[in-house]
Every structure is written in structure tokens, then in C-alpha cells.
């Protein structure tokens, strides 16, 4: 007689399968309907790629994309650099005062509700008279992207044995040389993962970008929101599908980096 697996519980498997179906149903719906020939979103009449052509020809969409990418690239670079510096000090400095407080401060944007932070920077910018829409977005995005860059980098630094840095110093490498030739190459997967996460968070952001939205600084999610307000259209589905594809691509890249890093470490 086969012993029943005591760790298994009845119904777990069907429940989990249902869960994953539910998790992917909405995404699948958007993707499928983006190829719908009909102008009405939910009435299927045939296969067509015309909505993709329409989306790519949409100038407002393209300029929103441009703004989003520009903001995301700059914010990612700044956030990653700031996070990298902070992570090095917080993981490598001995008897550092304010270590706990500093870690909390770096992670603060993750802990507090985004709408409050968005309101806060909105009032700040209006008080100091900052009117450049792009600059406002870059500053706000850099702030909330920093913890997303910080966490993977810190994890990587913590996972790396101190032996390697000591070996480098033992072999006559001055501190910065040791960092450049040993530490940085070894934590690079973490830095990439962090930067990628920060980039996606910036690209995806709606709450802050919407509140700071002002002349000439409409990001992609904010533009999509304005389209949704006008009603669901197949073109919207096409745009969403392109966005989904881009997100999944980046997510997969990060996953591969993580898995490879795990195998090595």
C-alpha cells in the first residue's frame, strides 16, 4: 500500500492551479483582445493587427513613451548610484553609527504610502517654485526607485564573503582597486537586478506621475489613464500588450540574472 504523503493537503493542487489561472486571466484577456478586429473591445469578430499599427502611429503615445523612458533612465542611474554607495557603506563599514536609522531612511519610500509622498513632493515643488515638469518627475522617481535598487545590491553584498575583499587587499590591491577589480564584478548581477527593478518601477509609476503631471511631462501610464477615461478601445489593448511584453522581458532578464548568480554563489 502506498503511504499517503503527510505533507500534502487535499485540494491544494486544484486551488493552486485555479489561482494561477486567475493570476494570468486578466493579462491573457488584454493580449487576446488586442488582436480583435472589432472596434468594440469585447465583441470578437476576427484577427487583426491593425490596432498595433494605430498605436505605433499615435504621436501622443510616442511622446509619452519618450518622456517615461527619459525619466526612468535618469532616475534609474541616479537611484542605482545612490543605492550602491549607501549599500557599500551599510554592509562594509565596521562600527558604523546610525546604521539602522540609515537603512530605514533609504527604505522609507517603500514603507510609506505613495500617495502621501506624491502629495508631499507636489507641495514642496510648488513652494520652491520648481516648474520644470521633467525635473520634478526625475527627482520624485529617483526617491522612490532608490530602495528598489538598494535591496538587491545590499543582498548581494551581504551574500558575498568578506574573504574576497581581504584576499584582494592581501594581494596588494589598494581599497579602490579592490572594489573595482573584485567587489564590483562580483556584485554586478545584484546591481543589474536593482537597476532593472528601479527602471520598471519608474516606468510603471502612476500615482506620483499623475499628481505631478503638468505641461509636457505626461508619462506613459498617465497617458494610458487618460485613454481609459475615454473608454476601453482595442488600441488601448494593443498598447497594454506592448507594455506587458516589455515588462515580462525585463522581469525574465532579472530572473535569469538572479538564478545565475545563485548557481555561482
Amino acid at each position: 500500500m502506498k503511504q499517503p504523503n503527510i505533507r500534502a493537503y487535499p485540494g491544494l493542487r486544484p486551488l493552486s492551479i485555479l489561482f494561477f489561472l486567475w493570476l494570468y486571466l486578466p493579462i491573457a484577456v488584454v493580449v487576446v483582445y488586442s488582436f480583435n478586429d472589432n472596434r468594440l473591445v469585447s465583441v470578437w469578430t476576427g484577427f487583426s493587427t491593425k490596432w498595433y499599427a494605430a498605436a505605433l502611429a499615435n504621436e501622443a503615445l510616442m511622446s509619452a513613451l519618450e518622456i517615461s523612458v527619459m525619466v526612468a533612465v535618469i532616475a534609474t542611474l541616479c537611484a542605482t548610484l545612490i543605492a550602491l554607495l549607501a549599500a557599500i557603506v551599510l554592509t562594509r563599514a565596521t562600527d558604523l553609527r546610525f546604521r539602522r536609522v540609515s537603512e530605514t531612511v533609504v527604505n522609507l519610500p517603500l514603507l510609506l504610502p505613495e500617495i502621501v509622498l506624491a502629495v508631499a513632493v507636489l507641495i514642496l515643488f510648488s513652494q520652491i517654485g520648481l516648474t520644470n515638469g521633467l525635473l520634478k518627475l526625475v527627482l520624485a522617481h529617483t526617491a522612490f526607485c532608490t530602495p528598489f535598487a538598494f535591496l538587491p545590491i545590499r543582498a548581494r553584498l551581504q551574500g558575498m564573503s568578506l574573504d574576497f575583499e581581504e584576499a584582494a587587499r592581501d594581494l596588494y590591491a589598494a581599497p579602490f582597486t579592490a572594489f573595482r577589480l573584485v567587489t564590483l564584478p562580483m556584485i554586478l548581477p545584484g546591481v543589474f537586478a536593482g537597476a532593472m527593478t528601479a527602471f520598471v518601477m519608474s516606468m510603471d509609476d502612476f500615482i506620483t506621475s499623475n499628481l505631478l503631471n503638468s505641461g509636457g511631462a505626461t508619462t506613459l501610464p498617465v497617458y494610458i489613464f487618460s485613454l481609459i477615461r475615454q473608454g476601453t478601445t482595442p488600441e488601448l489593448n494593443a498598447i497594454s500588450t506592448l507594455l506587458i511584453a516589455a515588462s515580462l522581458l525585463l522581469a525574465t532578464l532579472v530572473l535569469i540574472l538572479n538564478v545565475r548568480a545563485m548557481r555561482r554563489g
Partner: peptide, 10 residues
């Protein structure tokens, strides 16, 4: 990883 706005829109 998929944009929040897209997920709600779905």
C-alpha cells in the same frame, strides 16, 4: 512587473 495601470485596466 506589469504596469499597475494595465493590470487594473484588464
Amino acid at each position: 512587473w506589469v504596469s499597475m495601470i494595465v493590470r487594473v485596466y484588464a
